[in-house]
Simulated scan of single mutants.
Amino acid sequence: MPRTTPPRILTLLGTALAALALAGAGMAPAQAAAPVAVDASLTPASGGRVHPTHRHTPDVQYVNLGDSFSAGFGSGTLRAGPIPGCLQGTGPSHVTRLASLPGVHLTVDASCAGATPEDITAIAGAVRTQLATADLVTLTLGGNDLDLAGLITACSTLGSDAACRQALAMARQTLPSITASARTTLRRIDASTSGRILVLGYPRLFSPQYGDNDFVTARHARQLNRIADGLNRAVRAATRRTHTRFVPVAGPFNRHGLGSPTSWIYFNTANPGDPFNMHPTTTGYLRGYYPAVLHRAGLHHRVR
């Protein structure tokens, strides 16, 4: 889950949105932020179509927040999102598929690759007008509080056993703080909307049952998957005592991680620095994330 560009996203938000404030559409501190002026060419992902619905089926106002797993990294190409300094993928994902359902209107996709829970809190303040009228909110959060890229590199064939042990120990120590930071963010979002808030989990990125591969040994892959499981437990714990609901997605990816002949995880072997690496492919979003969120959002009856 790479960051967009240094410096940190929160700094980018502070400077870019402060400039927008001069034009009447900016952002003060998160608790007093003005709504972001959203570029109509970027939202909704369904192309702005208004879907006809049965007169007895109310329309659904939809807001998407979160990090790169919400921003569709791994599908399509890169594009700038409506939040200054934030990047998203252009390809199909669970978000675009939800937004294409009859009567579902994506009012803003404010997801941001590299966003931490703290960053997402600030972004939620910037789109508070959209949140106030939202019927559905989806997001992923917490993964960027881990140095996931560093962890995976240390445990890959580019690293060493010693480096992997150290990185795994640091990740385990970080997990409790992820629960605390994610809960703070979820409570802020919870207070901003009466809509249904679905907090999506993360997949296991590896399929060690297929043995060693050129990038990672099966042993290290199992250790990395256990960190992913711990991350999901930390995020699930953050949803307690809120009106948010955790949606697991690990199951569908179990035989489709890196190393599987039918992997749903993007990895560009020619470019280890590709920002899409270690994210779901289009298939991963549509066959892993979308069915899970469709069911929990109560929108399956709109599928045609």
Results as ranks from 00 to 15, higher is better:
268 N>F: 07
170 M>N: 14
272 P>K: 13
124 A>T: 06
256 H>Q: 11
39 D>S: 06
180 A>P: 09
116 T>K: 04
117 P>H: 01
124 A>L: 03
140 T>A: 13
33 A>P: 04
165 R>F: 08
221 A>N: 03
289 Y>F: 14
152 I>K: 01
150 G>F: 10
185 T>D: 14
268 N>W: 04
226 R>L: 11
120 I>Y: 12
69 F>D: 12
7 P>R: 08
202 Y>I: 12
101 L>Y: 02
39 D>I: 04
101 L>R: 06
103 G>A: 04
243 H>N: 11
169 A>L: 07
11 T>Y: 06
59 D>K: 02
57 T>E: 13
300 H>E: 09
249 V>A: 00
192 S>I: 07
134 A>E: 03
178 I>K: 10
194 S>W: 07
86 C>N: 08
245 R>K: 10
87 L>M: 08
276 F>Y: 11
57 T>S: 12
80 A>M: 14
16 A>T: 05
231 L>M: 03
297 A>M: 13
245 R>L: 05
67 D>G: 00
143 G>M: 00
238 A>Q: 09
119 D>E: 07
207 S>G: 03
44 P>R: 12
110 A>R: 13
131 L>F: 07
44 P>S: 10
103 G>F: 02
35 P>I: 02
16 A>I: 01
150 G>P: 11
17 L>V: 00
279 H>G: 05
35 P>R: 10
147 D>G: 15
98 L>Q: 04
185 T>E: 15
136 L>I: 15
64 N>Y: 04
